[in-house]
Design a protein around this nucleic acid. Structure first.
Lengths: 200, 200
DNA sequence: CCATGATGGACAGTGGCACTATCCACTGTC
DNA sequence: GACAGTGGATAGTGCCACTGTCCATCATGG
């Protein structure tokens, strides 16, 4: 199919598709001449993925480029799959070391995590910011939040392990992580109403 | 204290403080003359809150105005507190009705929720977007995510109920909801590593 | 065979947003 | 009484995701 048909199929304007091609988040079609190229179903999927990440996931286009790059690269073994996915999603440097409270929390929970990794540092920043804003985030509350999110992560891991191929697993981790975040936050709000009602 | 001292205390440039005054997210100081005003500790707290919401919470300044407006308004009874906080945080219209799957899920969980509310609709959109992006979000996985987030919400509600005053409770709900979101997402990533390691 | 319109490519422009800079009249302070 | 600080207004900056314009080239219907 030609670019105008790809635009029609996906509902994305031709101009935006050209922009995606320029930015490297959409692979070029198979050139049939110097002024035309052929696009396939994989391009439709890719466009849908990019739109979802940018629009609903709030991911910057530069990060989308890294993500789709990771999806296109030959996926490593399942062991390093999560590491590859995470380093793709983190992108930034850790910046500061994790505060003692966070490290202690993780150790107390018995989690085997990479304490120098970007997400532990990110967690430290987030906790600090919440406290600075005046949120009543006690260590006990944090521990219970962590246990709940461990249950979430177990589902994540099972979904990834259930994927038929390494490619699918990679997609499950990366897309699942980014796109399920808003689902979890919406569930949290709805659950707050339910929990509040249950208390009354 | 004067605006320059407020800037020094908070680390926010005077120009930005003037911008916050213009945008109505920072109340004016007590005018001591036509060219000077006196700011107090409550202004320091407010600036820290605004910075935290904008910088770490990614909240647009227009939404911050609504949030601080809700914090300043005399808080209603504890029963309607969550509703007030949520309508402040939602802002937007529900848009579309929630899909059948989501409504069914909530009923199956026995949650007493307002099915026409903005967050149920938001949840529907998020689920749809995740599926469109190719995330393997099975109904069973969604159910387990929901249960985990219910545990999160229980902590939220307890923190709010534990607040000494309605003002504090309002702050706990609004700030806690917005600023703890990044904490939860960071915990999810860290927990993924831990859960993945535990499986190996 | 040729007019017409689609295509790929380059590059500048748009709109939203969170600031940030400039300017001005005025005033508290040294 | 100089002078930096203040409030107020207006305009500009940088980032980012597009979006509009222009052009040479090419596919295709009449």
């Amino acid at each position: 199919m030609r670019i105008s048909q790809l635009a029609e199929r996906t509902g994305v304007p031709v101009h935006t598709l050209k922009y995606y091609l320029r930015e490297g988040v959409l692979p070029a079609g198979r050139a049939t001449s110097r002024t035309s190229a052929e696009y396939g179903e994989e391009h439709v999927d890719r466009v849908r993925l990019v739109r979802a990440l940018v629009e609903h996931g709030g991911v910057p286009v530069a990060a989308v480029r890294r993500i789709v790059g990771a999806l296109d690269a030959p996926p490593p073994s399942r062991h390093e799959l999560l590491g590859t996915a995470h380093s793709t999603l983190a992108g930034e440097d850790p910046g500061a070391a994790a505060p003692a409270e966070v490290v202690e929390l993780l150790r107390g929970l018995g989690w085997c995590t990479w304490e120098q990794g970007p997400f532990v540092a990110e967690l430290g920043r987030a906790v600090e910011a919440a406290r600075a804003a005046g949120a009543p985030l006690t260590p006990e509350a944090l521990r219970r939040y962590a246990e709940a999110m461990f249950a979430v992560a177990e589902v994540d891991v099972e979904l990834a392990l259930g994927a038929p191929s390494p490619e699918e697993a990679m997609r499950a981790v990366v897309v699942g992580t980014v796109m399920v975040d808003p689902v979890l936050l919406a569930l949290r709000r709805v659950a707050q109403e339910a929990a509040s009602t249950a208390r009354a």
